[in-house]
Design a protein around this nucleic acid. Sequence first.
DNA 1: GAAATGCGCGCG
DNA 2: AAAGCGCGCGCATTTC
Length: 557
Amino acid sequence: MVRLAPDGRELDRRVVGTAELAVHVAERQQAEPGARWVWHDTARRYPAMLDAGVRVGRCHDLRLCHAILSTSSSVARAADLRAATQWDAVAAPEGPTGDALFTLADDPAARSGPPEGIDEALAEFARQRAAIAGAADPRRLEILCAAESAGALIAAELRHAGLPWDAAVHEDILIAELGRRPAAGGLPARVAELAAAVRAQLRDPQANLDSPAKLLRSLHRIDIPARTTAKWELRDFDHPVIELLLEYKRLHRLLTANGWAWLAEWVHDGRFRPVYIPAGVVTGRWAASGGGALQIPRQLREAMRADSGWRLVVADVAQLEPRVLAAMARDLALAESARGHDLYAGIVERGAVAERHEAKVAMLGAMYGATTGDSGRLVPRLRRTYPRAMELVDAAARAGENGEQVSTWLGRTSPPASAGWRARQASAAGEGASAADRDRARRAAGDRGRFTRNFVVQGTAAEWALAWLGEVRARLARLDPVPTAEAAPRSGAAFARVPHLAFFLHDELIVHTPARHAEAVAEIVREAAQAAASLLFGDFPIDFPLDLHISRTGAKG
DNA sequence: GAAATGCGCGCG
DNA sequence: AAAGCGCGCGCATTTC
């Protein structure tokens, strides 16, 4: 550990273990609340501090920032960073007994993580500072690295606090939908009944409903000529088995994905604690590992219950991506249509299309690269009405098709075209290329174009969301703790007495707060959205309206 | 018998 | 209505 003066001068250095580090950080946070901690990997250091009740205000995550800067097209000498060992490697998580559990030092060949020493960390930090300072627009990368690092803190904090989850409510839903939980092994009553009814209709008591290939053959035997067993295809066939089968699939899905096994594995002591992975997606979106945090069915949302005396403030952004697109492209016409709560209604008002639903599929089609169907047909209407916004995504698509890289608003850059992709394009352009070669190359180019088209919008939306999260976190930290008598101890040592973020998913966040702070928190969440807009887009006139509500109920029963 | 692949479906 | 982006998971099937 090394302490630096604001001018970068070294004040003192010591090698410390995790426990000692937590104590030291707690002391320094008191003395210098604005300090920014520089370390290799937040995911590795911060959870143990939180367990010790220590929160950190700001940090610079060398691993995540290395990943951004070493591949950003905004950085002039990114190769210097790439040459600097493996700073974006994920190190093994620190176990309860510290690094000793993962000692790899005696086997240098097995060591895949980054250098551990202070000098190496300082050198990497200096390289990253230089990379940012030398960029054409240093402010954007500065903001991106700060937001990414804040996100790393938040990801650890979200897991520490967890999302209040009432297992009894969840179980009530399961019983209502599926029937009683079977004693051992078997299917719940309603699922078993449906399976039997489907097999009766198929006139095959042994029919396998869970193997797509076998199910398809069973359907063919009763003259249903489906090509696949996907529900949007089955829905079009007029046969009594269809409704039963779709209901069976729905319940079977609920059972296997979010049934009793999921509850037992992921909900403990009234909290759902998924593992968040900042920048787990190349666009900068977060991924999740375990628990399926990205896919909790809406049906189960009722099981989210604030602790007694606490509230959940639930907020999501209405149509985040098209709003981000309007601001990036400086498209005043689209920004005007986006004013207020319903961007799609605004598009209809402007006369681009006749119906709200058309506005929605057209806009999604423009951002995803639809070429066929209703969506593909409607995109040209948007092109006429919002030429600046549409040119931005069209240009991103052309760049991708040409094998170029694209960047988000703040400077996160898409991956380069793979060697295989380049080889395919080159051989298709050569003399001996067959029609099939050219066709494959054209399809691959189209795929890549749709990816880069979406990358700039999805990635910038992720940046806006990170800024929003970071603003919310900073402002929540200024609210007063409640007395111990009103604490929510299950939210963990660091958050038992203060409002804290409890969930985040792309364009949605949830804060768990003492009831007395709920209105203040709601205001903070709204203000933070405008602050994020200003941070990224300055005074460009774009709204980011929220759907926001405060949960009425406390814990069940 | 483990690992990779395909399908289907939940989420944004 | 089920194409056009990004994910993770469970299950069945194929491959090593």
